[in-house]
Design a protein around this nucleic acid. Structure first.
Lengths: 128, 128
DNA sequence: GTCAGAATTGACTTTTACGTAAAGGCGATG
DNA sequence: CATCGCCTTTACGTAAAAGTCAATTCTGAC
């Protein structure tokens, strides 16, 4: 496991700009360490970037992603906070389950659409 | 099945604003008929709104949603167009499968996070 | 017919998530 | 030493997706 990644290494790996990574840092999603002014990304930072990109693909906003990332961290020490956290996690999961239903429906409709196209091609005497 | 829905009926059903529905019309996603200047939404328009909201929840942009909606329509008559359409559908499906992987991973991590919280509560002697 | 409530258009504003340009620091290499 | 390539901050710009507001116009109920 590498010790540090430079900002451009990560931009290449995840196909995003340096601006984007700095923006995520401003937004409190990342906190790479510094050598002088230069950012050094640890493997854990790189993993955070992965999670951020995953969140993006699922259509979560920056603040939603921030919330989700909070959930992955060490659980809080206080009972009230813990219970609150559990409730929030359950909400996010419900959110994701809705997305899953949406996803399956969309996939099913696309399957149907493709089938129609294939049939139409067959009618036209094209061998698929 | 109702014949027509008013704009406000749909805003209430889907919890969106009239501005949003008109915006979708401007963007070519909807084309309700008119009585005078007033929009009348048919069941098919209402169904389109459902599909749009689904797309939104999955993080698709307006133009991606427009593309997907195109795919649900009658398949084109020309062989080249049909083959192109099939390729596009396959791309969208790959996109959705990626989202599904992202989703499952996120759900798994949230499960883990919740478990940590529950354990922590147990340590603190709280009965869940 | 009139009057409140709903609907319309059009213009301007806002939020999010970056893009882009300016101006320059730091270290290696020819 | 100069010039790459990579890194930095600061600041303004922008596209997408609506929100908001104003000025009208319908229209259904009384």
């Amino acid at each position: 496991m590498r010790e540090y990644y430079s900002i451009t290494e990560l931009t290449r790996e995840f196909d995003i700009s340096t601006r984007t990574l700095r923006f995520y840092e401003d937004e409190g999603l990342l906190a790479p360490i510094r050598r002088g002014r230069t950012r050094l990304f640890r493997p854990s930072d790189r993993h955070l970037v992965k999670q951020i990109m995953r969140g993006k693909r699922l259509g979560f906003s920056i603040s939603e992603i921030r919330e989700i990332i909070q959930m992955y961290k060490e659980p809080p020490g206080e009972v009230g906070q813990l219970k609150l956290m559990i409730r929030r996690i359950e909400e996010k999961r419900e959110d994701l389950r809705q997305k899953r239903r949406d996803l399956e429906e969309t996939l099913a409709e696309l399957d149907q659409a493709e089938e129609s196209c294939v049939e139409r091609l067959a009618e036209l005497g094209v061998n698929t």
